[in-house]
Each structure stands twice: as structure tokens, then as C-alpha cells.
Design a protein around this nucleic acid. Sequence first.
RNA 1: GCCCCGGUGGCGGAAUUGGUAUACGCGUUCGACUUAAAAUCGAAUGGAGAAAUCCAUAUGAGUUCAAGUCUCAUCCGGGGCACCA
Length: 756
Amino acid sequence: MERYEPLKIEQKWQKIWADNKTFKATEKPDTLKMYIAEMFPYPSGAGLHVGHVRNFTIVDVLARFYAQQGYNVMRPFGYDTFGLPAENYAIKTGTAPQEVTKININNFRKQAKRLGYAIDWDREINTSDPDYYKWTQWCFLQLYKKGLAYQKESYQWWCPEDQTVLANEQVENGKCWRCGHEVEKKKMKQWFFKITEYADELLSEIDALDWPDKIKTMQKNWIGRSAGAEIDFEIVGGAPKIKVFTTRPDTILGATFLVVAPEYPSLDALTNDDTKEAVKAYKTAALKKSEIERQENKEKTGVFTGSYAINPATKEKIPVYVADYVLAGYGTGAIMAVPAYDDRDREFAEKFDLPIVEAEFVDRDLYGTPKITYKMRDWLISRQRYWGCPIPIAYDKEGNPHPIPEDQLPVLIPEVEDFRPDNSGHSALAKAKDWLKVELYNEDTGKVEEMTRETDTLDGYACSSWYLWRYASPHDKKHAWDEKAIKYWEPVDIYVGADHAVAHLLYVRFWCKFFADEGYLPFREPIKKLIYHGYINAPDGKKMSKSKGNVIDPLDVINDGYGADTLRTYEMFIGPVELDAAWDPRSVGGVYRFLNRCWSLLGNISKADNIIIRNKTIKKVTTDIVKCNFNTAVAALMEYVNELYKQGASKEDLIALAKLLKPFAPHLASEMLERLDTDDEWPKWDEKYLTSDTVEVIVQVNGKLRAKLTVKTEDLEDEEKITSLALSDEKVAKYTKNGVKKSIFVKKAHLLNIVV
RNA sequence: GCCCCGGUGGCGGAAUUGGUAUACGCGUUCGACUUAAAAUCGAAUGGAGAAAUCCAUAUGAGUUCAAGUCUCAUCCGGGGCACCA
């Protein structure tokens, strides 16, 4: 038997799979389908890292496992290519992002192929390909038509480093998710998707999903539903009345003042000549505060506006304050303060010496109207950046927006010399003077007019909100997705990723519900099962990063001679799928030794037949893969191989081994199967071989292990016989000579506990 | 501050869901092969003890014939939310 040479074997099988298009997925109406995908990667210049390998290999193990079981499997692949890294690289080097992206994709594809993934390469998609983003624009227009894509002028998060606005989901602890720079608030007119329209459904359907609890909880918290009431307060002197939101309308008798947010629209009308300056100064200072400052300093601040409101329950005059502990974007931006029952209000009342009244509770809907409020805000989608999907809108001379007709899509990204963003509030698209102008029919005037194109691009998350449907018919020239293909393949059966708990995973659910309402999708939840796996850290437990110099390059591991099979199997063995794990180069060697042993067994087929352990292993590996317990599935295979080494392995033992190994180490297993001259159909176990003629019975005295008896399996039915056998055991007798109180026999655990 | 998870050998981690704690891998030690080394193969490996045994799943109590698993308290680590009225 020749040596195990992974690189040689892998090259051979990768060629065979590519030449035969082995993993091409076609619709087979009579076969159960299984659609499995990873969260498609952003193809960075650094190439694949070990985290990608974990992500893709989980998908691959499942895809191959189900294919071997006879499912009609689709396992597509694609690239999420719009975004800042490619654009920033372009700015630095002067290479167009289009070019950079092409190079990175080619590299990613080449590397992914070295890992032997069962990908249908004919379904590759790329979000910055005009054939793709044409349909992203189409999606935008559908939302626009229904009023779910709209413009609004309001205070937004602005990243001064990246010179763009950000969605709430992209601000982490007051910092930009991309560059980590502190964000600021800026009043701007921006495009939004009205995700709040679906808040209730997004919340209520979470529980039924087969997703990790962690993600479900995060989404629930993010949506943040609370039930309360809106109550109107008249203002003395005739200023517009103030509507407040409260979850405790029953405490209204204790409401001794009102507070509005600094951004409150009619704040000016509440002031008088005495208070005007102070209020203005307070507002300016509050808006300048960064999110971090607001979080760090929770000391209450505020000023009296000069106005009084009438408490509708007590009819008393109560002062109206402005304070930044009230948030503009939540509820109505105004509250009734009940210092007796709310800690924040009490703190404010104590500081400003306002009355604290412990009044009785009243009926909840006596003075207000019931109202449900959500923490979730609408999704801000405009970005003042070049490398994104252009928003298909143009403006007439009055500045009114008009959609670009569907037959004029795609709105192509214009080529420019300088991709740099600036603080003009416009993206670099504004520098393409020719592109900017477009002749469009204006429905308002009934004339064809010259209009100016929208220069903002779409948040990259818009592009990834529908790609899972594009995979079903990636080359469709006439539709975003083909109705028939969607009906067969969707929804996604298993989706695998390690990020985007609220953003992406909430947005795809939102779009799914919208397009279901529009009749384009026959389901309302896009992903049946979600697997959220942990990260792989450096051997020292720290995050891998170029600057720390602790990055493990998966291609190095392969080329060092271990091969892709070892890399794949190691990453499945590294620990429970949902946990972070530290890379251990020595364990990689352990997995390589294991595969080597599998290979060596092939050269020495014996007569020994290990029916029992073979059946046990088949059962264990099968059930473990279904439960995504990949680490213990590999451990079971190792145990099996150790046993075969001791006992000798029959051809049948080896066939089972190769088939079970194939999802993890497909090249080696394919080579083994070829030499064993057999197919790869997933093996079945037979319960009747899981028990032997004899069984070991554990004998405890007072819960402590004292003896192990070997009895005939059928004797498990005879408790008396086992008890007397146990009592006559020399070791047991030592402890039971003073008599036995009782004994408990557990057949399932083949255990006997004698109490003395 | 509030809400979730976790804590098991020298290390990563198993444990049929209340039933033999430490599977599997790494590391370590010894042995075989070899002139030698690597590779490979075999054996041992929670702690104490000569042994019988005893003690060990963060700590302390409790329930039970039986607890890593259930209950309560405490300590430590991780994650999420965080002025959301």
C-alpha cells in the first residue's frame, strides 16, 4: 500500500468533480430537496481565513450528508462585494473597486475549490454584478411603490471617518461598526425602509423558528415591543398640545411634570422670552454630545421651557422641561414624569426640586388611547458612498423624487476618477456629471423633463436581503427570481453563519414578509433552521489579526502537506459548533494521524467482522450530524478506527468507514470508496446489532460502584436473578453482610443499586 | 443596573438528559522497530496511598436509592440590553 498523499488525492478528485459538475443542482419534483447555504462571504484581499473554512465546512458536511442520504441538495455560493473595504482600497491604490473585486473573487473561488466543497458553481452570484444589482434596484422600486421606501429629514448617525450615515444596527456602543470611529448626529434627508410596518409580525413569528435562542432573544430585544398608551396634555397659553407615550397610564395622578426631548419638533413654541436662550443653548449642547458621552454621563440635565401643561386627571398645572434623558426617536419624544414610580423621573425631580406624589392608580385607559410602541426604528438605507448599488430615483426641478422605470434598470454605477467621499453630503457618484442627468417622464407635469439622479447608494444589507432567493434561478434575465424555482427550492432549509444576529437576519425576514404580501413569495419566513457557529481564535486564545501576526492561513495548512481533508475534519473536531475555539496546531497533527490510519486500514482487509461497533458508529455519526454535533461525530469515527486497528477490519467495516467519513474528508473517502468498488450511499444501522449476547451490569452499594457483572442480555429481564448474582459477588458481599434494606434495578442503564 | 448562558484532568472537550464521571484528541511517560532520528505501532496517564480504599465536576447547603446533571445561596467567567418612559 502506498503512502497517504493528500495533495495528490485531492487534486484528482477536485478535477473529477469539476469536470463532471458533480454538484450541479437541478429541480427534481419527486425528490426531497435540501437547500443549504452559508452567509455569503465578503471577498477580502486577504483571501480565505480559517473562520470561512469553519463556516463553509459546516455547510459542506451537511450538504454531502444529505446528498448521500438521497436528498436533492442545492449548495450554492456567492460573494457580497459592495462595501467599504474595496472602496477604501480603491482610494488608496487608485484601482477601481470593480477591478479589486474581480481579483478578490477569483482568488476566493480558487481557494474554495482547494477545499473540495460540494458547490454548484453554476449558481455563483456577485452583488456588484449589474445583472444582480439590477434586481436589487427592482426590489427597491417594489418597496417604493408601496410606500415602504421613503425619504425623511431627521437626525441620523453620521460617521465622520467614513463620511456616510449609518443605520442604527450599524452603530455599536456609539461607534461605527466598520471603522470604530465615534459617530455623530446630523440632520439630513435620507431614504428609509419601513421595517417598523412589520414589527409585530417579525416579533410574533420568532418563537416558531428553529434558530438558536441567543439570536431569537437578540431580535426580540431589538424590536422591543411595549404596550402602553398615548395621552394628550393641553398647554396653558395655547401652544400645541403634547402627546406623551407611557407604559404606565395608571400612574397619571402622580405625573407632576412633562419632559420633551431636545429634538422635540415644537420645542420653540414652548419657550418664552425668559427661557428662549437657555432652551436653545441646552438643545445645542445636547445635540453636540456624542453617543458615548451620553452613555458615560447619566447625570440628569435639563431646563424649564417656560410652559405649563394641564394634567388631565388632576387638572393641575405642571411644568414642561426639556431634557436629554428623553429620547426623540422613541414613543412621541415626550413623557409624563411620575417621579414616585420611575427611577429616572425621581432622579430628575430630586435634582430640580419638583414634587413627588405617591398617588393612587387609576384605570389604564381612562385618559389615553392604548398604543403599542417599538424600540426598532425604520431602516436607514442611503449611504454617501461610491461602491454600492445606486438608488433608482431621480429628482425633478422642485426636488420631488421619481422612480426610474423598471425597463431602464439597471442604473449603472458611473465610472469616476476619484472615489473619495467628502462632507458635501453626496457620494462620489455626484462627480459623474454626464451620468447625473436623465430624461424622465414626469407624471405631475405630464412632460419629459431633465432630472437629476439620486447620488446615494444603498446599504449593502439591501443586496444581501434577497440573495437567498436569487440562488434558485441565478441567471434569470426577466425576473429577480423564478416563481417555479422558488417554489421548489425555498425556503432555505439550513443557513449557517457567525454574524449579523440582528441586522441581516432581521432584514431578510422583513423582505420575505413584504414580498410574500406582494405575491412574489409563497412563504413568510426565509430560513427554517439557523446554525450560528463560534469564531476560531489564534492559539493564544486572542482574535486573529494581521497586526498581531497570529493569523493562521488555511492554504498554508493544506500546502504544508496536511491537505484539505485534514483541515476540514480538524475544524469540525475543534469543539462544539456554537463555541469559539482556539487553533491548536498539534491537534491538526492528531487529525492527520487519524486520516492516515483510515488510509492504512485499506491495505490490510481482514476477515474480522465488527458488526456491533460498526452499527453503533453508524448510528452515532448519523444522529450527531443531524444534531450538528460534529466534534463528537468525528470522535466516534476515531473510536471506530481504533477498534478496527485492534480487531482487524473487514471490507464491510471499511465501506461503512469511508461512507461516514465522506462529509468530513470527501477526497480521501472518495478514493477509499473507489478502491472498495462501491457507491457512497449513506449506511443504515440495525438496532438488533446494537446489543450483544452479554451485557455488563453495574452493581452499586449505596450509590458507589462496587462490581461489574457480565450477564446474558436476556437476564436483564430477571431482576431477582441479577440481584442474587450481585449479592453473591465477593466484593459486593463485603458491604452487604449486615443485611440489605432494598435494591433498585434500572434496566435501561443496566445498573443495580443495593441500599444497606 | 437588568436579562440570558457557562464553570468537568496539564490543555481542547465527552457524558445515553437523574444511573459506571473524565469518551475522543493533544500533551506527558515507558516500550517495540531503527546504527540513530523522524514516522509508525503498543502500553500507561484525575489526585492521594504499598494496598484495601478514600477524595475529586467553582464553593457551601438541600432533594434523591443515586446529582456534573434538579433546588437554594455565594464566588468567578462570557454574551446581550442599557436613560426605550
